[in-house]
């Protein structure tokens, strides 16, 4: 009897300590939750509600309908195109660079230098980046002049233009490929030398190793980083804004609606941003689906 009571007490106290332990575990999550609510859910929900309100705060679908006007549709197309082009271009270039440095048997300091550079360059965007490119490759830029003086080549005559789509893409590439380097470096580190040796030992050529082993293993990282690069370019604002006023990507339109004097309509700006969220959500969905299909071994 006494034994039973004692067991009861022990059970109670162990239950209580379990509750406390759970509380403590949850307490650790609180900062994260606060952060997510304050900086993600709250702005996103106010943005979404704003998309469905007119300037006096009443419900309307007009902002969403306005998204389908040609000029706005063109802006979305342009944003998507420049993001895809620079994600793939920067992705390939960044990947090859990371590969050369990590698996290519180059001295250690080259890697350190590239990583440091990438850390800085991947954050070098916006107005300073645009002006750096104008000063280098603009009509009177340093390199433009150098080509003209030393080689007698006028790159603008040859079709180059910093202020068109490909010029903007080139400028974006400057922060895209370093991001790729930063993301792919650890993934390439994870590519074990024994896998190459095992495949060679089983008779595979270098091409077959890449085709059947290395690329499939890297695929999830490649896919993930490409989507990240896509988002990185998709959300870029100041670079495009400062470089050219003729290429209106979506972010520039949003800027016009929110802070512009002529076109001031914040609710349309919210709707534009809402459209971007939808596009990002669709691409992340696509990414997840592809990942599930192609990398079953990760589950």
């Amino acid at each position: 009897m006494a034994q039973a009571t004692q067991n009861q007490i022990r059970a109670n106290s162990s239950q209580r300590s379990l509750v406390i332990r759970n509380l403590v575990a949850w307490a650790g999550v609180v900062p994260f939750l606060v952060f997510v609510i304050l900086f993600l859910f709250w702005p996103a929900s106010s943005l979404i509600t704003g998309s469905f309100q007119n300037q006096s705060g009443a419900f309307t679908l007009q902002n969403i309908i306005d998204l389908f006007t040609p000029s706005i549709m063109n802006a979305y197309m342009l944003s998507i195109q420049i993001s895809i082009v620079t994600a793939i271009g920067g992705g390939i270039f960044g990947f090859m660079l990371a590969y050369a440095v990590i698996q290519g048997g180059l001295p250690r300091w080259v890697r350190t230098a590239l990583t440091t550079f990438s850390g800085v360059a991947s954050n070098f965007a916006g107005v300073p980046l645009a002006f750096a490119f104008i000063a280098t490759l603009g009509h009177t830029g340093f390199l433009t002049a150098l080509f003209a003086d030393k080689l007698g080549i006028d790159i603008y005559n040859l079709g180059f233009n910093l202020y068109n789509f490909w010029g903007l893409a080139l400028t974006y590439m400057y922060f895209q490929f370093p991001l790729m380097v930063l993301i792919m470096a650890p993934a390439l580190d994870g590519l074990r030398e024994e896998w190459r040796e095992a495949s060679e030992n089983l008779g595979a050529s270098s091409y077959q190793y890449w085709r059947y082993v290395a690329l499939p293993i890297l695929w999830p990282s490649l896919l993930g980083s490409t989507i990240l690069l896509f988002g990185n370019a998709f959300g870029a604002y100041a670079t495009a804004y400062a470089l050219t006023r003729t290429l209106n990507v979506v972010t520039v339109l949003i800027g016009d609606q929110i802070s512009g004097n002529v076109l001031f309509n914040p609710n349309l700006g919210y709707a534009l941003a809402f459209g971007m969220i939808v596009i990002m959500a669709v691409s992340i969905g696509l990414y997840t689906w592809l990942q599930r299909r192609t990398a079953r071994w990760l589950q």
Partner: peptide, 13 residues
Amino acid sequence: GMVFQSYALFPNM
């Protein structure tokens, strides 16, 4: 044929 200390199995297969 070679057997490695770390198995070296292809994780994707």
